[in-house]
């Protein structure tokens, strides 16, 4: 009897040891969070990204392959602020995995960790597809990203306490190089301060907030509505008085509207990577900001 008891304890201990060595399965909604989770989690996490830089994170199908991935996830890392409202809740409801439901430790929303911009005073669909909790494209401000990284590292340590020291060490390393990069970027970006840019969709608000860039207009007539030629003509008229530096669009947006406006106004159109994988050489969050700044600085006359 006594022997049995010890065997049970031994089996339990083995089970626990095994599970503490097994990598955490991380399901990242967007590539920027996949990259951050990989950087902070190292070889203790196994990360999959639900989307690529060429996919519009607002419009993703709740595909069977994604349900299968959420089913096995220990942690979801998503932008939040309703960016994924059209697909993530369906994945969560269908996967039967309570660990990653909202409010659980296995559910991490980046937008929840920082002060958000663009929280609307009133909700009315005639203003377009606006998010009640504010603008969700939070990763494009490296200062906020730093706060999110700290919170995510803590979350990894909470979920996987045996590796807590490992996660802290990796976070310290990341944090140090990030602070250095931030100083470097800030200096490099000085010529962009106060610049005016036309965007495709309002996914650059946090980037602009960081550098003091002004949004001169949007190719979308209302947030989330497809571009129309009538709106482009109106925009052209409005931009004549004070021409902006450039028209920017991302890898997941069609370049057609930006190029057309560029053609009729002479304002350069610039494709920016927006997230990790959005351009050649953009392999992590560091190269994302390097490349974005490089492309914007190139159009300064």
């Amino acid at each position: 009897m006594r022997l049995n008891y010890r065997i049970i304890l031994l089996v339990l201990a083995m089970g626990l040891t095994k599970s503490s060595l097994a990598a955490l399965n991380v399901f990242a909604c967007e590539p920027e969070w996949a990259s951050l989770a990989e950087t902070l989690g190292g070889d203790r996490v196994k990360v999959v990204s639900a989307t690529t830089a060429y996919q519009d994170p607002h419009r993703i199908e709740a595909r069977p392959s994604l349900i299968a991935k959420v089913r096995r996830a220990d942690l979801l890392v998503c932008s939040g602020a309703e960016l994924e409202i059209g697909w993530l809740p369906m994945l969560q409801r269908q996967a039967g995995n309570p660990k990653v439901l909202r409010g659980q430790p296995g559910y991490f929303e980046a937008a929840d960790q920082i002060e958000r911009l663009g929280i609307p005073d009133s909700l009315d669909r005639s203003m377009g597809d606006i998010h009640a909790s504010g603008n969700p494209h939070v990763h494009l401000d490296p200062r906020r990203l730093s706060t999110i990284a700290t919170a995510l590292s803590d979350r990894l340590a909470n979920l996987d306490p045996t590796n807590a020291d490992y996660y802290r060490k990796r976070h310290d390393e990341f944090s140090q190089s990030w602070e250095e990069a931030l100083q470097r970027w800030k200096t490099r970006a000085l010529p962009l301060v106060g610049a005016r840019l036309v965007v495709h969709h309002q996914d650059w608000e946090y980037f602009f907030d960081w550098l003091g860039i002004i949004r001169a207009g949007s190719l979308e007539p209302k947030p989330g509505l497809p571009v129309s030629s009538g709106h482009i003509v109106k925009l052209k008229k409005r931009l004549q008085q004070e021409p902006p530096l450039a028209i920017i669009y991302t890898a997941y947006q069609s370049p057609r509207a930006a190029k057309r406006l560029s053609q009729i106004t002479g304002i350069p159109a610039v494709e920016l990577p927006y997230t990790v994988g959005g351009a050649e050489g953009v392999v992590d969050l560091f190269t994302l900001f390097d490349e974005t700044l490089k492309r914007l600085l190139e159009v300064i006359p």
């Binding site: 304890l9 201990a13 503490s20 430790p105 937008a111 929840d112 919170a151 909470n158 306490p161």
Partner: peptide, 25 residues
């Protein structure tokens, strides 16, 4: 060993964050 581990994980679960964005409706 077992006891310590389970305590640690209980504490860590209790510590996890945070204010969750409220649904508008």
């Amino acid at each position: 060993m077992f006891l310590r581990l389970s305590l640690a994980s209980a504490v860590s679960l209790a510590l996890t964050t945070n204010a969750i964005a409220v649904d508008s409706f």
